[in-house]
Write a protein that binds this DNA or RNA. Sequence first.
DNA 1: GTGAAAGCGCTAACAG
DNA 2: CTGTTAGCGCTTTCAC
Lengths: 337, 337
Amino acid sequence: MPGINEVAQLAGVSTATVSRALSGNGHVSEATRTRVLAAALELEYVVSSNASSLATGRTKNVGVVIPFLNRWFYGAVLEGAESALLSHGYDLTLYNLGGGGDERRSVFEHFLLRKRVDAVIAIALDLTENEVGRLHDLDKPIVGVGGSILGVRTLSIDDEAVARLATEHLLSLGHRVIALIGGNSASEMDFHIPAKRRGGYQAALTAAGIAPDPELFQAADFTLQGGYAAAKQLLGNPRKRPTAVFAASDEMAIGTILAARDLGLHVPDDVSVIGIDDHELSEFFGLTTIAQFPALQGRMAVDIVMDQLHPGHRTGGTNTALPFELIVRSSTSRPTP
Amino acid sequence: MPGINEVAQLAGVSTATVSRALSGNGHVSEATRTRVLAAALELEYVVSSNASSLATGRTKNVGVVIPFLNRWFYGAVLEGAESALLSHGYDLTLYNLGGGGDERRSVFEHFLLRKRVDAVIAIALDLTENEVGRLHDLDKPIVGVGGSILGVRTLSIDDEAVARLATEHLLSLGHRVIALIGGNSASEMDFHIPAKRRGGYQAALTAAGIAPDPELFQAADFTLQGGYAAAKQLLGNPRKRPTAVFAASDEMAIGTILAARDLGLHVPDDVSVIGIDDHELSEFFGLTTIAQFPALQGRMAVDIVMDQLHPGHRTGGTNTALPFELIVRSSTSRPTP
DNA sequence: GTGAAAGCGCTAACAG
DNA sequence: CTGTTAGCGCTTTCAC
């Protein structure tokens, strides 16, 4: 584990020069730069990030706070963020809030404050005012993904528009009795999302001259199991069986497909199903869905953070709306008359 | 952002005393300790981990290297490790190798060497000799989970025994024609695992006087889709349809159940299915499986690391064999005659 | 363009 | 039990 001074010695320069040559700050003649680089390479020198951080105040590390690891959306966002950070030379330290209140408190009261991060990315988090306050006290860039945090720049698809699009797809196929399996707040997702998606669904129906029917609504927890149970309720209703189901997540939509099967209903002949996400299993199940691109969202969050950390060094694409896209597969069709 | 000296001033002691009082190293009178604590609390003082690390050489941070985030097993291990680390006051820096060779190289050649971690946990990684060498050069504790790394203490279930148990379950129900959907190496899991599981399967068959039949073997990539395709091959074989399928992962087993359904076969009447993992979806599908407990594995890895970092401070349970457990649900039964 | 030197904020001897 | 004093390894003025 050679230090900067051994490199300096080998290269025959001062430590200051080594620092400049390696970091690119300040001018160094081309000749000495190559000499330093060679020396560093030979000794396999790697800066001590602690010493460097202490001296500069920058850590080259960003904290990512996330409520789950084992759900597709979260994992994908994390993956995107991780690789983007890596490519910028940043480390990612992970704070998972899944373990309940205690972990959550200690993350906000201690861990994030240790000056170990230059910025924080909060994924799909519903923060309390107190928590937001603490984050702001950090006085560091903070960006959210897929939730909405008071006073924090947040990346998230237009849930209302997404839901409208999904519903319109069903309407355009000729469906008139369209059920919604929405989210509930027990699912620990940002609680605004279920409401927005429901709003989009209702708006589309209303625009088509159809009054949203509360009997055609079920709330579930975004999981396959939850979707299955909700779908059973909806599809088993003897007086008002929907010809189409719009589920607010692909996992719930897949649950719906499975529920239909178990009821002996054929998808899409007896019932059309559409979801949101483009989950990794959706293609397998032939699920029509509105894709969102969580890995991209993670990457974009990193871009924003980098922009704030290195102004002028724009990585581009910071302010664009988040993309989503209707992907039509085999789970939707015209209703059979 | 108060520093240690402001706390010292407020408490009317030296910075050294503050350091001692807060860290618990060295003796401080009860009276001053409380005074210091009060001062620290009032100022909301939090140590600068960089300064502290620089001075002590310890970072209170461990690196976790992982090949995927979005597979159940990996996510669960990570979750377990994260919460265990948190409870020890450690941060977790995440290195995801999913992005292909380049990321992988830079993780091993730069990131891990920045002296930012006190130890590394490698999850289900098949490391090259070069990579192992670099890790050892770090001269820091390193433990593996669910793979086997040359010269590294590794936690992993006894894959051979697990496979034997699964096969025996099927045998004991009376099955004689038992197919195996094993892993292939394209799945990026440690390539020893598929071989060991196949070995256990063959051993159990042989012990029961049944010659393993290569026609009853299919390799897949541990995913649901892969399992589905493999199962179709197996179950569609007109001359030798198995009465039971043992899949080396629950995802593949679920794929098998779905494939059976699509072929009009009933599970378990026409074909029994057993998996390995106890995946979060397994209960939903009524899948009989051998549970392994990845979160626990993550936690145990942390325990070992902590033991090595703080000798004497044993957290216990370090050396126990990893548990696994047969969970019988509704996907297995006696073969119908 | 390069070197000398003063810290970054904390910890760990060493005294007392 | 507590204070003084060196650093930990790097970066960054400030001179040259």
